[in-house]
C-alpha cells in the first residue's frame, strides 16, 4: 500500500494542478486569467511527463564516463525530457499568439472581460 502511494502520489498532485488549470480556463472571465490557467495546465502536463521519466537510483541523462551506459538502469530516460523541451517551447509560442490576440481584442473592445465583450458583440 505504501509503495502504491509512493508510486502514485505524484500523479495525484499533478492531477490537482491540472484541475486548477482547467478551473482557471473554464471559470475565470478575465482573458488574462484564462491564459494563466492555460499556462498552468500546460506546465502541469509537462510535469506529468517529466515525472513518468524519472527512475530510482539513476543519474541525469548526460553521459558520465564513470557510469557505464550499457546498463540502462543507470541513466534516466532522456525521451520524455526531449519531448517536454519541445512542449515547453510550443507552449511559449502559443502564449505569444494568445497575447497578440489579446492585444488586438483589447484594442477593439477596451476591456478584457469575456462577458462584457460578448455583450458588445451582440
Amino acid at each position: 500500500m505504501f509503495d502504491f502511494i509512493l508510486g502514485h502520489y505524484a500523479y495525484w498532485l499533478t492531477i490537482i494542478l491540472l484541475c486548477i488549470g482547467l478551473y482557471g480556463i473554464m471559470f475565470k472571465k478575465n482573458l488574462v486569467k484564462k491564459t494563466i490557467g492555460l499556462t498552468i495546465l500546460q506546465i502541469s502536463v509537462v510535469l506529468f511527463w517529466v515525472s513518468i521519466g524519472s527512475k530510482w537510483d539513476a543519474t541525469v541523462p548526460v553521459r558520465d564516463p564513470g557510469i557505464p551506459t550499457a546498463e540502462v538502469a543507470n541513466y534516466l530516460n532522456p525521451l520524455p525530457h526531449t519531448l517536454m523541451l519541445t512542449a515547453i517551447v510550443v507552449g511559449v509560442a502559443t502564449l505569444g499568439v494568445a497575447f497578440a490576440l489579446l492585444v488586438a481584442t483589447y484594442n477593439r473592445y477596451k476591456t478584457l472581460d469575456e462577458e462584457e465583450i460578448l455583450e458588445q458583440i451582440q
Binding site: 482547467l22 480556463i25 482573458l31 484564462k34 491564459t35 492555460l38 495546465l41 500546460q42 502536463v45 502559443t94 499568439v97 494568445a98 490576440l101 489579446l102 488586438a104 481584442t105 477593439r108 473592445y109 465583450i117 458583440i121
Partner: peptide
C-alpha cells in the same frame, strides 16, 4: 480576434 482567442483557449486545452 476575440473568437480566435476563444478558439485558442479551447484548442490549446484540447491539444494539451
Amino acid at each position: 480576434p476575440f473568437s480566435a482567442f476563444r478558439y485558442l483557449i479551447i484548442g490549446t486545452a484540447g491539444g494539451t
